[in-house]
Design a protein around this nucleic acid. Structure first.
Length: 344
DNA sequence: AAATTCCCCAACCGCCCTAAG
DNA sequence: TCTTAGGGCGGTTGGGGAATT
């Protein structure tokens, strides 16, 4: 038995997925839907562990993934959410439809982190008070995870307002401007990918302009009572009279979503609810021999507007479950310059 | 054109949580 | 109550393409 397990494990493949493996997993998922990943790996005829299959599906094969570069609006939202949630990538991803936690994490670690570092350096040159301070400020750790290190991360209000300006633009462009998908992303994405994004926008619209909640920072009345009481309404005053939030060293231990009164996302399971019949329908109209790495092609997001519509509609249904949560979050966000994250 | 460096991102690793037995 | 397996998550790594020398 034990030897058998070892034998099986030793046969398991690692590393990059081949198109054939993608095809196997995709086919299996389309016909059977989700289940026990270990079984999926076995039944699909893959020499992979269940974990590997799950990761591949979530990060790459899922039909509702948005492709292409992050839009400036998405970037701002990531920055903003990260300032509140820290490195809770899955929770951030749950609020960015079509994006995976891995994708956001990579984007943060490569692009945003760097950009932020630059901004901080520039600000340091201009003002005596750093925007981000660190107990052990010497290197890249100056932008380390506030959740895991003993870092005091102070975001001043002027910087916060820059975000707000972006977010204000985002609230209108993401929810009202249909040109968003074509204008805001990398020029290299295909028209099909753009249409996927447009489909995504259909349900983004359903949030009733959630980002508008971000705009009114200076209105204390927006601060939820639970936040004021749980955090004692403490305000950190900076050198220039700016207010900021403090991310404490043990913030990860305090269960941020609880302390922030973030209700759990009902649709937090990043894996989508599959309409197997519908997907199969699309799937059967395409040659399985085509390179599966362009998985989205298999789902007919291309030229058929009806497909876009139904795809969007389905996602609307799925996402509406979490609508209240996002709004609640945004209420939290709207107040965060005045919050003090109490450290245990 | 070749060599080297940079850096993005896919995927693995390890830890934690939860449910089942 | 303890053990085990599976799933989820965040941190990290290394391959490989792009950029630079």
């Amino acid at each position: 038995m034990g030897n058998n397990n070892i034998m099986i494990k030793s046969k398991l493949r690692k590393g990059l997925w081949s198109p054939e493996e993608d095809e196997k997993l995709l086919r299996y998922m389309l016909t059977n839907g989700q289940g026990c990943w270990t079984d999926i790996a076995r039944n699909a005829g893959l020499q992979r562990c269940g974990k590997s299959c799950r990761l591949r599906w979530i990060n790459y094969l899922r039909p509702d993934l948005k492709r292409g570069a992050f839009s400036p609006q998405e970037e701002d939202l990531i920055v903003h959410l990260h300032s509140i949630l820290g490195n809770r990538w899955s929770q951030i991803a749950a609020r960015l439809p079509g994006r995976t936690d891995n994708e956001i994490k990579n984007f943060w670690n490569s692009t945003l982190k760097k950009r932020f570092k630059l901004t901080v350096n520039n600000n340091n040159n201009n003002t005596p008070s750093p925007n981000i301070t660190n107990n052990n400020c010497s290197d890249d750790s100056s932008f380390s995870d506030p959740n895991t290190n003993g870092i005091m991360m102070i975001m001043h209000l002027n910087e916060q307002q820059q975000y707000d300006n972006h977010l204000m633009a985002m609230s209108s462009s993401m929810c009202m401007d249909s040109s968003y998908s074509s204008s805001s992303t990398s020029s290299s994405i295909s028209s099909m990918q753009q249409q996927q994004q447009q489909a995504a926008m259909v349900f983004t619209d359903q949030f009733n302009d959630p980002f508008s909640m971000l705009i009114d920072h200076n209105n204390n009345s927006n601060v939820p009572q639970c936040l004021m009481t749980q955090f004692g309404g403490m305000v950190e005053e900076g050198h220039n009279g700016n207010y900021g939030i403090i991310m404490g060293p043990n913030i990860n231990k305090m269960g941020l979503e609880r302390e922030l009164c973030l209700p759990p996302l009902e649709n937090d399971n990043s894996a989508p609810v599959l309409d197997v019949k519908r997907l199969n329908n699309h799937f059967n109209h395409h040659s399985i021999h085509q390179k599966v790495s362009k998985v989205e092609e298999l789902f007919g997001f291309g030229n058929n507007n009806n497909n876009n519509y139904h795809h969007g509609q389905q996602q609307v249904e799925n996402l509406k479950i979490g609508e209240w949560d996002l709004e609640g979050l945004m209420q939290d966000i709207s107040s965060f310059p005045f919050l003090d994250f109490q450290v245990e």
